[in-house]
Amino acid sequence: MLELKDIKVKINETNIIKGVNLNVKQGELHALIGPNGSGKSSLANAIVGREQYETTGSVKLNDLELLELDVTERAKEGVFMSFQSPPSIPGITNYKLLSQFSKQYEKYLEDIERLKLQSGWAQRDFNDGASGGEKKKNEILQLLHINPKLVILDELDTGLDVDALKIVKELINEHKNKFGWIVISHNSSVLRSLNPTHVHILKDGKITNTGSVELLNNIDEQGFSDVGK
């Protein structure tokens, strides 16, 4: 489904990603872990198509070259990213922002309840006055209604408390087979609980190790600096 070949990303002439290859198939959940500043979020933004991220190589989604498309076109082809820090946009309601993509209002209300968001969430201004956890839940709520092909969760667990994380994990597991997943986190226990099919360590803009959940155990024991030496 998603095929990254020799991806290199530059921001303001600084090389951030220095040649990444990655294949993600539907139903696979790829955990991407790495130290701060290793380029995890930059890789996510490059796949989504943020302009400032000058990207070379090839990013194919079902054989379609995404690097030739702008951010809107990529979203329409099925790329979805849950943002690390989703914005607040006062003046437009949560449901209004989504309503172009989903007319299932009843289902939307059910999902709000499922995610334990406050009643009235649909008509509240978009993320206005929302906590970090509520913003993250709102990303998952949108995911359930936009129905993409590729899902990138950038720092999924930031802001989510234990109970909220449990609900989000349940939802991910329920929908695991529908999408291809790249889940970015610093937290190996969160990634482990999602039963990733693949684990990759990103260090200094390169994937240095790829393996199974075992790799997460090695990180816990040895730290990033010693794994793969």
Binding site: G49, R50, E51, T72
Partner: peptide
């Protein structure tokens, strides 16, 4: 905000 909305398909 522009990037966010565009990433949602607008």
């Amino acid at each position: 905000h522009m990037f966010y909305l565009q990433s949602r398909g607008y």
